[in-house]
Simulated scan of single mutants.
Amino acid sequence: MTNSPTEKIKIACLQFEPHFGDITGNLTRSIAMIEKAADAGASVIILPELANSGYVFRSRSEAFSLSELIPDGPSSRAWAEVAARRRIYLVAGMAERESNRLYNSAVIIGPSGIIGTYRKLHLWGDENLWFEAGNLGVPVFATPFGRLGVAICYDSWFPEVFRLAAVQGADLVCVPTNWVPIPGQAEGQKPMANILHMAAAHSNSIIIACADRVGIERGQPFLGHSLIVSHTGWPVAGPASGDKEEILCGEVDLSAARKDRNWNSFNHPLRDRRTDVYAEHLGAELAVQRELRHCNREQ
Results as ranks from 00 to 15, higher is better:
Ala165Trp: 00
Val150Cys: 09
Leu148Trp: 04
Ser156Tyr: 04
Phe145Lys: 06
Trp234Gln: 14
Gly146Tyr: 14
Ile182Gly: 04
Glu246Phe: 08
Ala200Cys: 07
Thr232Met: 06
Arg273Asn: 03
Leu196Pro: 00
Met198Glu: 14
Gly149Trp: 03
Arg274Asn: 07
Leu172Lys: 11
Cys174Asn: 04
Lys244Cys: 13
Pro235Leu: 09
Leu172Gly: 10
Val173Thr: 13
Pro191Ser: 13
Val175Gln: 05
Arg213Val: 04
Leu172Ser: 11
Asn267Gln: 14
Val173Phe: 07
Met192Tyr: 06
Asp243Thr: 15
Asn262Arg: 15
Val236His: 02
Pro235Thr: 07
Arg213Asp: 02
Cys153Leu: 06
Gly215Thr: 06
Phe162Cys: 08
Val236Asp: 03
Leu196His: 04
Ile206Gln: 09
Trp179Gly: 05
Ala193Asn: 13
Asn194Thr: 00
Cys153Arg: 03
Ser265Trp: 14
Val150Phe: 07
Asp253Glu: 08
His197Ala: 04
Lys259Cys: 11
Ala142Asp: 12
Phe145Gln: 11
Val150Glu: 03
Glu245Ala: 15
Pro269His: 01
Asp276Pro: 07
Asn264Lys: 03
Ala186Arg: 13
Ile195His: 03
Glu246Met: 10
Leu270Arg: 01
Arg274Gln: 09
Gln189Gly: 07
Cys210Arg: 12
Glu246His: 10
Ala209Asn: 13
Lys190Met: 15
Gly238Ser: 02
Ala199Gly: 11
Ser156Met: 14
Gly233Ala: 08
Pro239Trp: 07
Gly250Tyr: 09
Arg274Tyr: 06
Pro221Asn: 04
Glu245Gly: 14
Ala165Met: 03
Gly149Gln: 02
Val175Met: 12
Asp276Leu: 13
Arg274Thr: 05
Gln220Val: 15
Val173Met: 12
Ile247His: 08
Gly188Cys: 10
Glu217Gln: 06
Ala166Asp: 03
Cys174Ala: 14
Asn178Phe: 01
Asn264Gly: 12
Ala186Ser: 13
Ala199Arg: 08
Met198Ala: 06
Trp179Ile: 04
Asp243Ala: 15
Glu246Ile: 11
Glu217Thr: 02
Thr232Pro: 02
Leu270Ala: 01
Ser203Asn: 14
Ala256Gly: 02
Arg163Cys: 12
Gln220Ala: 13
His225Ile: 08
Ala166Trp: 06
Leu223Asn: 12
Ser203Arg: 14
